[in-house]
């Protein structure tokens, strides 16, 4: 069973721990929300799980493999604060590039290049069908984020790490996004996302980072 394990992870910034002693195990089919105030380390923990940052203590693993290993990256979809959309290119060109290096990350077929039709269908689902061939600098901030979210409709990556996925998305878009996330969890994916919005649902597990603030004032070596 696919799982992400976080074992006593701490992250140190400027000699002070941002959070410490974070432990959790998440299995396939689960949607996890990282919650907490601004500056409590949600994005940092997310980037640690993605293997971009190294935690200063503890370890994070995917089915026992290090998260900076190929085993994890070949099944990962990560959406950061900066979503990785080139403004000079159109949403279609951006998707072609994205899947050109990532593939669908499907475990069944070896990654076949995605057709324009498949990508256009994904862009239609995020409401960008009419803007598929318009350079992204002409789109609004919300539309640019939607262009990045279109990746979710084509990817078979098992793990989705979504950093503030609801930012700049309108109400209908948020509902659609929640639907996709639930569907992905339903087919055995793991989703970890950050948000300060509440998502009232039984299915969501919440990790509140407020609980992992450093206890002692002075930090011993």
């Amino acid at each position: 069973m696919n799982r992400i394990e976080i074992e006593q992870v701490a992250f140190e910034r400027d000699d002070v721990n941002l959070f410490e002693d974070v432990s959790a195990t998440w299995h396939q089919g689960e949607i996890v929300q990282l919650a907490g105030k601004n500056g409590c380390g949600k994005t940092t923990l997310m980037r640690c799980i993605a293997g971009i940052h190294q935690p200063s203590a503890g370890k994070i693993s995917w089915n026992g493999h290090n998260v900076s290993s190929f085993d994890f990256r070949s099944t990962l979809l990560y959406l950061g604060h900066q979503v990785g959309i080139k403004l000079l290119m159109t949403p279609m060109e951006n998707l072609l590039w994205y899947f050109g290096i990532n593939g669908t990350k499907s475990s069944e077929e070896s990654s076949i290049p995605l057709s324009r039709e498949t990508l256009l269908a994904a862009l239609t689902k995020v409401g960008l069908a009419a803007f598929a061939d318009v350079p992204c600098f002409q789109l609004s901030a919300g539309q640019v984020r939607r262009a990045a979210l279109a990746r979710l409709y084509c990817s078979y990556a098992e793990v989705w790490l979504l950093d503030e996925p609801f930012t700049a998305i309108d109400i209908a878009g948020v509902e659609a996004l929640k639907g996709v996330m639930e569907a992905h969890a339903g087919t055995g994916g793991v989703i970890i996302f950050t948000s300060h919005q509440l998502w009232d649902s039984e299915a969501i597990r919440v990790l509140d980072l407020e609980a992992y603030r450093p206890k002692a004032q002075d930090i011993a070596l």
Partner: peptide, 26 residues
């Protein structure tokens, strides 16, 4: 374990993108 596109595909996708961006920002 999943497969990702081979290095040649990643190389061409990245290369094409660079040229495309350059063509837009002359």
């Amino acid at each position: 374990m999943s497969a990702i596109p081979g290095p040649h595909r990643a190389l061409t996708a990245s290369f094409k993108r660079e040229l495309l961006v350059a063509a837009r920002a002359r």
